[in-house]
């Protein structure tokens, strides 16, 4: 691994953002809309006087964390798509750049943009609804790490699918966070789901984060919390590793059938 090559991939994406501020819009617009919409819904539900349940804390906390996961996954995919649209693969992969360095460069780009979006959400949630996610304390750190690892894995996985089937497969990447949100229990406890879906949600690392978030806010047991986060973290790592291996496999497949060399021409 060479830092200069990882930095080159990162820098190319930063140049793109710098050269076209329109690219920054999706980094902020959707998450701002999410916070605004769910903030007002939570405020309304809170005003109905439904017991001691704090809607703002539970819903906005979940929305901010989910926004972070979505931005990271889309960030990796978008950075990859920029190289497909350019097209830039031929120049990249004929250079000394290694696959691991390339993926790390893409991941760094998505971390940078996701952190910007995360900060924007925190500021907006604080200013408009008086919500401070940092009140969760240090438990926020494992939450973010699990979501981050899972999101990077998903981003690499969908990039590999696009790499394998061509740019037409791009549409598969957009609804992934929405589908995962159903099984992750972002907006409701997992027990709300039918039993079969509850079993599926056990395979989704983010479901452990959102169940834990609700448990923390409800002041429930720390023993179960540690088990949940360990399972979530282990699953996130397994998916991340599997996605990386899948990308390498697709790269080798494209190397053999000439797709890597022809990729630019295929979409040109």
């Amino acid at each position: 691994m060479k830092i200069s090559r990882i930095y080159a991939v990162f820098l190319r994406q930063i140049y793109l953002l710098k050269g076209s501020p329109a690219r920054l819009v999706p980094v902020f617009v959707w998450i701002v809309l999410d916070v605004a919409q769910w903030g007002f819904i939570s405020k309304y539900l809170g005003g109905l006087g439904l017991g001691s349940f704090n809607f703002i804390s539970v819903i906005l906390g979940a929305i901010i964390l989910w926004g972070f996961l979505s931005r990271v996954q889309h960030g990796v995919m978008m950075a990859f798509l920029e190289d497909i649209w350019a097209p830039n693969f031929l120049n990249y992969f004929a250079s000394p750049l290694k696959i691991g360095e390339y993926l790390l460069g893409l991941s760094l780009t998505s971390i940078a943009t996701a952190i910007c979006g995360f900060l924007a959400m925190i500021v907006l949630a604080g200013a408009a609804f008086g919500y401070n996610i940092f009140k969760l304390g240090l438990i926020l750190l494992p939450f973010i790490l699990i979501l981050f690892l899972f999101a990077i894995g998903m981003g690499i996985f969908i990039s590999a699918v696009i790499f394998r089937f061509g740019p037409a497969a791009e549409w598969l990447g957009w609804p992934i966070p929405v589908i995962l949100a159903i099984f992750s229990g972002v907006y409701y406890p997992i027990r709300t789901l039918p039993v079969a879906m509850q079993w599926l949600s056990k395979l989704v690392p983010s479901s452990y984060v959102f169940e834990s978030l609700r448990a923390v806010l409800a002041g429930n047991g720390s023993g179960e919390l540690a088990v949940n986060l360990t399972i979530g973290g282990a699953l996130a790592f397994v998916y991340f590793f599997a996605a990386y291996k899948f990308f390498i496999r697709v790269y080798r497949h494209n190397l053999q059938n000439g797709m890597l060399a022809r990729f630019g021409a295929e979409i040109g």
Partner: peptide, 11 residues
Amino acid sequence: QILTVFGLLYS
């Protein structure tokens, strides 16, 4: 920018 990116890729 292109020369910078490729210069970094080739160290």
